[in-house]
Simulated assay, not measured.
Amino acid sequence: MAIKVNTGWQKKVWRVPRLDNLELLHLKTHSYEYPPHMHEEYSIVLILNGSETTTCRMGSHTAFAGDLLLINADELHSSKSVTVEYRVMKLKAKTIAESLSWIWSHRLERRYFPELIIKDRILFQTLLRLHLKLEQQDTALAQESDFASAITLLLTRTAGRHLALPRAGKESHHVERIRDYLKANYAGNVSLADLTSITNLSPFYLLRVFRNRIGCPPHEYQTQLRIANARKLLREGKSVSRVALETGFFDQSHFSRSFKRIVGVPPGYYSSQSKIVQDGNTNIW
């Protein structure tokens, strides 16, 4: 396939193995043209700057900064860009099919996204945050939860506008089982599949039920547990690097960012102040 490229081409492509090898792309260029082609995946395109004109469905359609471009799998199209920057997620057909069955028990249609260009600020920002997060290292539970929540929003606000999500009940028993599991495995790399296996709930329903009951998603609850235990270990005099390792963080930098976000001060400062306060037989934080 011939690609006409003008200048300033910058492209980054990466995959997320734990999300069924999800492919992501970040591209910047002054101008380019793609001849007619198609993808086996569903392409979710976030236009950050410039414009992207896509020819398909018996016409030409131009998306601008802040717009979502949704191209269905096996949909023949050509593209022309002017000073464009965009981010792309390529969703496999089976990912869409599984998501639909989890949400509505709804069968996948061959052409699922009926609208090519979507103007939806909330959806755009949600997908952009997900894309940026998936460029960084994080826990399995965090990535899977963020992905499931974003895809639910995508489907309910676009192709699923005529459908309604089932209401999430209290499901106290399931929530308590999840909390107990996370408390027992707070330092482990818990996956969303681990939580669905102990509750028999779909990933999408599980996330909604847990958030409704607790006020945050499971991965944030796990992070809170990690930081609570980290504070205890720091007060016991353990080093920051050792505490980061024992509480399940990837590295000391990841631990420090999470600790400061929740506690308000870096772990090193917290540790030093704990030693001072302990000498005075009092406590902090």
Rank of each mutant, 00 (worst) to 15 (best):
I3M: 12
K4H: 06
W9G: 01
W9A: 07
Q10G: 03
K11F: 09
K11D: 15
K12L: 12
V13L: 12
R15G: 00
V16L: 05
V16N: 02
V16R: 02
V16A: 01
D20L: 08
H26S: 15
S31T: 12
P36K: 09
H39E: 11
E41L: 01
S43F: 01
I44L: 14
V45Y: 04
L46W: 06
I47A: 03
G50A: 02
G50M: 02
S51P: 00
T55P: 00
H61Q: 14
A65H: 10
L68C: 05
L69P: 02
N72P: 07
N72H: 05
E75D: 08
H77A: 08
S78R: 13
S79F: 02
K80V: 15
V82G: 00
T83I: 00
V84S: 15
Y86H: 15
K90C: 05
A93D: 06
K94T: 09
E98T: 08
L100K: 05
L100Q: 05
H106D: 12
R110L: 11
F113K: 02
F113P: 04
K119E: 14
R121G: 00
R121K: 13
I122A: 09
L123V: 03
F124S: 05
L128K: 11
L128Y: 13
L130H: 05
K133F: 03
L134D: 10
L134E: 08
Q136P: 01
Q137M: 01
A142V: 02
Q143C: 03
F147S: 01
A148Q: 13
A148D: 09
A150G: 05
L154A: 03
L155R: 03
R157N: 10
T158Y: 04
H162N: 11
A164S: 15
L165Q: 04
A168T: 01
S172N: 06
E176N: 14
I178G: 03
I178V: 15
D180M: 12
Y181N: 03
L182M: 11
A184R: 15
A184V: 07
Y186W: 15
A187T: 08
A187H: 14
N189C: 01
V190T: 13
L195R: 09
T199S: 08
P203H: 05
R208F: 00
F210W: 09
R211Y: 12
R213V: 00
G215I: 09
G215R: 08
E220P: 00
E220W: 08
Y221R: 07
Q222F: 09
T223C: 11
Q224M: 14
L225P: 09
A228S: 14
N229M: 10
R235N: 14
E236L: 13
K238D: 01
K238P: 00
S239E: 06
A244S: 15
A244P: 08
L245M: 13
G248M: 06
D251K: 01
S253G: 06
F255K: 07
K260S: 14
R261Y: 07
V263Q: 07
V265A: 05
V265R: 10
P266T: 11
P267L: 03
G268R: 07
S272F: 09
S274T: 15
K275N: 08
K275G: 04
I276F: 13
V277F: 10
G280N: 12
N283Y: 13
N283R: 10
